[in-house]
Design a binder for these strands. Structure first.
Lengths: 115, 115
DNA sequence: CTGACATGCAACCATGGAGTTGCATGTTAG
DNA sequence: CTAACATGCAACTCCATGGTTGCATGTCAG
């Protein structure tokens, strides 16, 4: 049985880190729009090198946000649905705590009108 | 009419980047739990220096996730509600596109049974 | 006023991330 | 077989980031 650890926020840091780069967000957007794309396709239209794109894709893959499929001489990349959902839940959790904290803070302030 | 473009994913990158560090996630968690805390309080119990904590707080502040309030000789930090909500909406947007992409892909695959 | 406490500031270091280039390898089309 | 195309691999540069230390400043308590 697993310890019902409430936060486990730390675990999600790598996912956020992977999402925290404009180039990678663009790759994700492209994959959202284009289904499975090859490295060459993902590189076309960008200002950066194919190698740079490859590295970014590997970062995303490490965070389980995308995965690759070999197809002949090409390597196609596509989205990994499950992980994004986890990230979203994590953000929801943070937001929930956030709200609680604000409620608490607000209550505290109101209960103590004059210093 | 404007193309209903998924509102500038790029814009949210800094927020994700700010969240993409375990130390910063811990600070956020601490602020969630503790309301407004001073730098010294946030430093206590961690393995890193007060200066390091200060720098992380400034990163979070740059992303508008927290803000500071001067209080005498102390500098108290507290959460900034609005931004997290934006990040959450961004993730929801990504997830929505994600789902659409998967639907489309699924439809495509099913329409083309034998290659 | 004076000491103790909470920070601010600046210089400095080390690492890792983002990007590049050059060359090797695998694959598909003629 | 061979040329062209899509990648893989490795070495190298550059700079932002995470962290440190040392010292200066502002502020509260007595």
């Amino acid at each position: 049985m697993r310890k019902s650890r409430p936060p486990a926020l730390q675990k999600t840091a790598p996912v956020f880190a992977a999402l925290g780069d404009p180039t990678r967000l663009r790759l994700i957007a492209a994959l959202c729009a284009g289904g499975a794309l090859s490295i060459a396709q993902l590189t076309a239209g960008t200002a950066i090198t194919r190698q740079a794109v490859t590295k970014h894709l590997e970062v995303l893959a490490d965070a389980d946000l995308v995965h690759d499929v070999r197809h002949g001489r090409e390597r196609l990349w596509e989205l990994q649905p499950s992980r994004i959902d986890e990230a979203r839940r994590a953000l929801d959790a943070i937001a929930a705590q956030w709200d609680q904290a604000l409620q608490r803070l607000k209550a505290f302030v109101e209960r103590k009108p004059s210093s």
